[in-house]
């Protein structure tokens, strides 16, 4: 096993441990008591499926380029993380898989850079940004560049592993931790809107009056 693989393995184990600790410390949201009007399960299902559709939210439909760039960016990051995990067990991939990863990482990198440019130039976004926003974006872009390089030139795989190790170690510390917390957020908010019969909208109850 290569030294870089060992470093990556150690980094991944550490990262998972830290994320697990964060999740443990978060605790759980108490089960709601008020009787439901709609279905929490339907709300959660919606939150993790149709709510991602570009027309489901104004934030997406009114800002389609940004939203689609964000989606492409995140798909690429996910692909990169999978590639990192695979690199622990075997360095080479079939050329088709390599091709797919190269396309995803390439698109993701382009989108990541575009989002970075947007953050630097958009007055509104600058007003809410902190130095770490630029840093986290740049770090992820670097990882995507390394993913792309490893897909095109297998000899750069050790570099990809080292960059990946840095990324997974850093992830639980800064804003990238949203990858854990957004699961809870989406779950909880989806359940709330579902229970209250707001989204998806509950069929109007026709109960025991009269």
């Amino acid at each position: 096993m290569h030294a870089t693989t060992l470093i990556l393995l150690a980094a991944m184990v550490t990262s998972v441990a830290v994320f697990t600790a964060l999740r443990f410390r978060l605790g759980s949201v108490p089960a709601p008591i008020a009787p439901a009007r709609g279905s929490a399960a339907a709300g959660i299902l919606y939150a993790f499926t149709f709510a991602f559709a570009p027309w489901a939210k104004e934030s997406a439909s009114r800002h389609l380029p940004s939203y689609l760039a964000g989606i492409a960016y995140h798909v690429a990051v996910f692909a990169g993380l999978v590639r990192l995990a695979v690199s622990l067990v075997g360095p080479s991939l079939p050329s088709l898989a390599n091709g797919v990863i190269a396309v995803l990482a390439g698109c993701g990198l382009a989108c990541g850079l575009a989002l970075l440019v947007k953050r630097c130039t958009d007055r509104r976004l600058r007003a809410v940004s902190v130095p770490e926003d630029y840093f986290a974006n740049a770090l992820v872009n670097l990882m995507l560049a390394a993913t792309l390089a490893a897909a095109l030139r297998p000899s750069t795989l050790p570099v990809f592993q080292i960059v990946g190790a840095v990324l997974v170690l850093y992830a639980p510390l800064g804003k990238l931790r949203h990858m854990l917390f957004l699961l809870t957020s989406r779950w909880v908010l989806g359940a709330t809107f579902g229970r209250r019969g707001v989204r998806p909208t509950a069929v109007r109850s026709r109960s025991d009056h009269g």
Partner: peptide, 21 residues
């Protein structure tokens, strides 16, 4: 803080797409 508030506070990535909602 309760879990709900903590999760929300750790989730915002400042994408800013909420502005005009």
């Amino acid at each position: 803080l309760d879990a709900r508030t903590t999760a929300f506070l750790n989730s915002c990535v400042r994408c800013g797409l909420c502005a005009d909602t």
